[in-house]
Design a protein around this nucleic acid. Structure first.
Lengths: 179, 179
DNA sequence: CCCAGAGGCTAACGCCGTTAGCCTCATCGG
DNA sequence: CCGATGAGGCTAACGGCGTTAGCCTCTGGG
């Protein structure tokens, strides 16, 4: 295992266990038993580490969405993954995505299921993605009132998009036996 | 105008003009012609300043949504406001909301139009809010591909929720002549 | 055997938020 | 009119941050 991977591992551990404030170069170095400046022998800077985490998260999220058979499954898987890795999700979603230094296919994989289950309509897929992201983001930021039934909001979301799919069919059929 | 208001004004100016990195206590103080520690004669700390900005933003956003007559209007107003104040929007949306130190009515005002246009269904309102937030958030984070037609995604969103409203009616009528 | 490069190290720079402690006025009660 | 008081400045400092410069040591290949 490369030293860079070890660094990113430690960063992920720190992020998930102690929150974003704990992911400092000094703390990170201490975790590996070295001094902060030594990290720069393996990594450009903190930005790079965060970009690596971002790519990891996208890959994992894509895998988690892969088995979803319908919109309800997809929504559930999306929410579950985010709630399981809240800090990582936030980091991934809020950083601008540097596509130029993303390994090919990562983004495509993450969005494939989404587009497929939106009847191939990329605009609908983006709206659905945004909606799921929004629900997760607001939940993670504790923006819903104390006793709010978040699941009910998810149900309302799935209902809205399911019905659209029901009506504007045709496109769906052409994808049901996946290409 | 109280000194606190001046501070928050300066913070908002700095945030919108130069980004979140520019909003430091030292920079903020310099803007007012004083030294950083003097700020603490008027404010608890940086958190408090951000909370004030958050409340301001919620109030303004509520006002911007107020005149919306239907979902399409609402979606448009939401997006427009966010694109007009991107940094302020991010700050407001990503900070946890401290309801205990929010002036009464601010949150209610911000969500009233949303709930009303969702036929009084609070779950649908939350899903719609989350979807709008998600679209804005992803757009601000440059997460859509270069040439993506973001407006089309908004249209797809409005379509989805409009149709739901069409079908599950009844509730709508009881609110149309607003109480 | 040598020497180059990998991978550590310390010292330091310029930021950050925040605290402690001091000083200077203007205001106002006696 | 005097003196206390409090508002609102100030400097110095602390412990953190990301990052750079420059040095040393060890190890593996020619």
């Amino acid at each position: 295992m490369s030293r860079l991977e070890e660094i990113v591992d430690a960063a992920q551990r720190l992020l998930e266990d102690e929150g974003p404030g704990a992911v400092s170069m000094r703390r990170l170095a201490a975790e590996l038993g070295i001094q902060a400046p030594s990290l720069y022998k393996h990594v450009d800077g903190k930005d790079r580490i965060e970009a690596e985490l971002q790519e990891r998260a996208l890959t994992e999220l894509a895998a988690a969405l892969q088995p979803a058979a319908d919109l309800r499954d997809l929504a559930h898987a999306y929410r579950q993954w985010a709630l399981l890795h809240p800090r990582l999700y936030e980091l991934t979603a809020r950083r601008p995505l540097r596509r130029d230094q993303l390994r090919d296919g990562v983004e495509t994989a993450a969005s494939a299921r989404l587009v497929a289950l939106s009847g191939g309509d990329v605009d609908r897929a983006r709206a659905l993605w945004a909606a799921a992201h929004g629900l997760v983001d607001l939940e993670l930021a504790h923006r819903f009132p104390e006793g709010a039934d978040v699941q009910a909001a998810w149900d309302a979301l799935v209902a809205a998009f399911d019905r659209v799919a029901d009506r504007e069919d045709g496109e769906l059929d052409s994808l049901s036996g996946q290409p």
